[in-house]
């Protein structure tokens, strides 16, 4: 008996030790790999600087990091950048928010009325099958080269990702959860609202995150094709003027916007779900 208690205790202690070391590993701090990564980045930046400075690589192909920073400060200070940045942001946000709203509402309606899904899904599949890039000339013809055509394009880029992820998530609601609802004689509406939609939340957020990642790309691409404003317009203008540092500035900015946007959605997901979903 005593021996058994002893064994139990030692296994418990061992388990505790294990979680402790795991925690330590997770915090981890600064490893050799991290150091190498940083060294690589510094090396690349230095190489860019020196290669352009010494003329080994032409200024047209590569920009020295110092000239990128200088160009950024210049267009930020002389007011060239801000209007274009704001236009792009507002196009992305408007298109994305409308797509998220419509996607979630129809996700809910499709779950509630499967007949509606049956009716609509063939049309959605048809629209989804068209490469968005190919539809752009038509959108420009219909909505002009300004704000509207970009918003419509982002909407088309994003709405199906939100819609299908919501509906798929709802369909994958665990059978056991649905049985519980049936035992309590829940109505169809109650089952959708109180069981299927909450169960679909993680999948819905997955769709919202994917859409956030593509939205910025879509806008910048559209602005490069036909626009008078926006970061995409600025980018193609810089290309035409052979202003390579400016191209780098805009590429970096667009990347930052895209990453921040995805992080923002992930943050919203975390506040909504973290208490129960243990992500």
């Amino acid at each position: 008996m005593a021996a058994r208690a002893e064994i139990l205790r030692t296994t418990a202690v061992a388990a505790e030790e294990k979680t402790k070391t795991e925690k330590k590993k997770k915090k981890g701090g600064f490893t050799v790999v991290n150091a190498l990564q940083i060294a690589t980045v510094i090396f690349l930046l230095l190489y860019m600087e020196i290669a352009v400075d010494t003329g080994r690589v032409s200024k047209i192909f590569l920009a020295a990091p110092s000239s990128i920073v200088k160009e950024f400060l210049k267009i930020a200070e002389n007011g060239t950048l801000l209007p274009h940045l704001l236009i792009t942001l507002s196009e992305v946000l408007t298109g994305y928010l409308i797509a998220a709203f419509v996607g979630i509402i129809f996700g809910f309606l499709w779950t509630l009325f499967p007949k509606l899904e049956e009716y609509m899904s063939i049309f959605c599949s048809a629209i989804m099958a068209i490469p968005k890039v190919a539809i752009l000339p038509l959108l420009i013809l219909w909505f002009g080269i300004g704000f509207q055509s970009k918003v419509v394009l982002i909407f088309l880029f994003s709405v199906f990702q939100v819609l299908y992820n919501t509906v798929t998530g709802a369909k994958q609601t665990k059978q056991a959860y649905l049985k519980v609802a049936r035992v309590f004689e829940a109505s169809r509406f109650q089952t959708v609202i109180k069981v299927m939609i909450p169960a679909a939340l993680p999948s819905m957020f997955n769709g919202l995150r994917l859409a956030a990642a593509t939205a910025t790309t879509g806008v910048v691409f559209a602005e490069m094709q036909a626009a008078k404003k926006g970061l995409g317009f600025l980018l193609s203008e810089a290309q035409n003027l052979l202003n390579t540092p400016r191209m780098f500035v805009i590429i970096i900015l667009v990347t930052l916007i895209s990453v921040t946007f995805v992080k923002l959605i992930a943050g919203i997901e975390y506040t909504v779900c973290h208490r129960w979903s243990r992500v």
Binding site: K179, V180, F184, Q190, P198, A199, L201, W276, S277
Partner: peptide
């Protein structure tokens, strides 16, 4: 049910109250 089949997005209080809420 086996494994309880509680709704993970509800607190224990709201899980227990589910039937009364639905009715």
């Amino acid at each position: 049910f086996q494994d309880a089949a509680l709704y993970p997005w509800r607190t224990i209080r709201r899980n227990i109250g589910l039937g009364l809420e639905l009715s």
